[in-house]
Computed example of a mutant assay.
Amino acid sequence: MNTFDCVIIGAGPAGLSASLTLGRARRNIALFDDGTNRNRVTQESHGYLTRDGIKPQQFKEIGLNEVKKYPSVSYFSTTVTKINHDQKTALFIIKTKGNQLFTAEKIILATGIQETFPIPSIREYYGKSLFNCPYCDGWEMRDKPLIIIAEKEAFAMHMVKLLYGWSRDLVVATNGTKLSDEALEQLNKRKISIKTEPIKNLIGDNGYLEQVEFESGEIIQRSGGFVVPTFHRPNQFAEQLGCKVLEDGVVVTDSAGRTTIKNIYIVGETEKASSSSLIVAAADGQKVATSVNMDLAIERF
């Protein structure tokens, strides 16, 4: 088997950026991706200078084409199913869905995160009229009648304060959670409606929200909104490889992507188990790639 200097798992903005930097550093790289990036349902991506409004798939294709120009970078469109660490050789053995095996000196985990929603039907509207990031989609939803779906008070208040700059026509829906008197006072002062009863149904057409129905039978008109999901990594690679992970899901690093296990690096949303913008993830990928390259340079000098 050909041994790569580094295997990068995940071709989102973080993984692509890391691949580009390492490819330009003439490192022998393998990049794996299975197309499950969470922004694939988004119509447009925003906030990335020179690429504002680009479709996520187009962004990815541009990145892949740039990375593939470098002959030392190999791209594999497949799922990595298992990573083992060979203690004798100190190499990592990467197994894919097709039972192919690859070996590498170093690993960058860039598999991102996935959402879990408080109401399953949110998935039907997510990326078209329901979103989780005001910086990404707040402008498009400006001045519209919006709903904020958040089951924890802290998250609900954080989101409503953010969105108040984009739209004043807001309804906060906690899906059964009661709010504190302090929170109620703040919201009532600004004439923001509060619905604490569970949501029964979301009503709309082709991914575009029109109404929200509550358990009481009450139906309100909304043109879209924002939801606070919980996030999780789609795999347990970090845990299985022995990396230290905090209770909140954050993988411990030295701030330059090096985990507590030598030669394993982590980047972007995968590290923090929380959402990030394209531009921040790409910058993080470049930073971690320089750590990998510097470590290789020192070890081989």
Rank of each mutant, 00 (worst) to 15 (best):
E210A: 08
G165K: 14
A25V: 04
I261P: 00
S72K: 08
G242Q: 08
L163E: 14
N84S: 01
Y125F: 15
D169E: 14
Q286K: 10
D5M: 05
G257W: 06
D33C: 00
G224A: 10
F226H: 07
I279W: 03
V7S: 10
G138D: 10
N175C: 02
N235E: 07
G127W: 07
R168S: 11
E66C: 01
T290K: 13
I148V: 11
S223I: 05
T89P: 09
K82G: 00
A282N: 05
C243N: 12
S193N: 11
D143H: 13
V251A: 06
I113D: 01
T42W: 06
Y125G: 10
A150C: 04
R123I: 12
Q186C: 04
E218D: 14
D295P: 09
S255C: 08
V67Y: 12
A183L: 06
T260L: 12
T89D: 10
E185V: 13
G257Y: 04
F4M: 09
T103W: 02
E140P: 07
I148Y: 12
S17E: 02
S223W: 07
E105N: 15
F301C: 09
N293K: 04
I9E: 04
L187E: 09
I220K: 03
G224P: 03
A150N: 10
A273I: 14
R123F: 10
N293L: 00
A289P: 07
P118C: 04
V292R: 06
A150G: 04
E210W: 00
I266F: 00
T103L: 05
K82S: 05
I54S: 12
E61Q: 06
M1V: 11
P198C: 13
G53I: 11
H232R: 09
L109D: 02
F131P: 00
